[in-house]
Nucleic acid binder design. Structure first.
Length: 254
DNA sequence: ATGACTGAGCATCTCAGA
């Protein structure tokens, strides 16, 4: 089973990139974030490759989707606990006995105190949902753009200010509390030390200077983690023409 | 010490991203 996640920063700008990726990598399931369009404007290009799309869209901002080459069922289109969330940031699907959650976690740097409070409330609701699924003994993958750089090794020196919402202590504490429910950070399980970036800013030659961040993650419940084979970002995607600022992360489970 | 890209939209600037 191969599951990928990718913040595409506009699916309409990146439809060709995604098509090429699906042809080359052929994941069973691809979770997308930052579609920046409503469902009606989501490109139809992927059906011809055998991928069924379930889209949670929104005009201009946010938006997530699941593309499957295998049959899957949508369980939730909003984070349970935030049923009236006006922002399209959550999709939960089932492939047989496996539950897969795709998230676009709020950045938290805009909107002042309210914007950051929204990020923390979203993380609290995600914690509650993951705890509920683990209590039910579900096999679980939580993946997507978390907008959290968990440790100092996860961002290049100078790439973020110390009080950025991606690294503030309240943010990191909530990320750790998710792990402490019993989840395994798959990128770190495969590559325990050193920088492994998933994002490079468009500005100031960040890619050329390798001034990146690790903010896209795949977290695995225990039985899934026992079957972990590989998990890594595809950094070459960042060097294509007109790329997203994030690269895909591919997870392989035996 | 400072600046710096990209995308969407009731658009020629503002908001958001991270």
């Amino acid at each position: 089973m191969r599951i990928a996640t990718w913040n595409v920063n506009s699916i309409r700008q990146r439809a060709t990139h995604v098509t090429d990726y699906l042809k080359r990598v052929q994941p069973d399931l691809l979770l997308l974030q930052e579609l920046k369009c409503e469902e009606a404007a989501f490109p139809a290009d992927f059906a011809a490759l055998g991928y069924h799309a379930e889209v949670v869209g929104q005009k201009a901002y946010n938006g997530v989707a699941a593309l499957g080459a295998v049959p899957f069922e949508v369980l939730h289109r909003k984070l349970p606990g935030l049923p009236d969330d006006p922002q399209a940031r959550y999709i939960e699907v089932a492939i047989g006995k496996l539950t897969v959650i795709g998230i676009y976690l709020p950045n938290g740097n805009s909107g002042g105190d309210d914007g950051y409070a929204y990020k923390l409330a979203w993380m609290d609701a995600l914690h509650a949902r993951v705890a509920e699924l683990l209590d039910q003994d579900r096999d679980l993958v939580v993946t997507g753009d978390f907008n959290v750089a968990p440790e100092d090794v996860d961002y290049a020196k100078g790439a973020l200010s110390p009080n950025d919402a991606l690294v503030r202590p309240e943010t990191r504490a909530r990320y750790r509390s998710l792990l402490w429910l019993g989840l395994t950070d798959a990128i770190r399980a495969i590559n325990p030390t050193g920088p492994v970036y998933t994002f490079w800013d468009y500005q100031a030659g960040a890619r050329q200077r390798n001034a990146g961040l690790r903010i896209d993650h795949a977290l695995l419940s225990a039985r899934v983690a026992e079957r972990l084979v590989a998990c890594a970002p595809d950094s070459a995607e960042r060097d294509r023409v007109q790329p997203s600022d994030h690269v895909p992360v591919l997870l392989e489970i035996a």
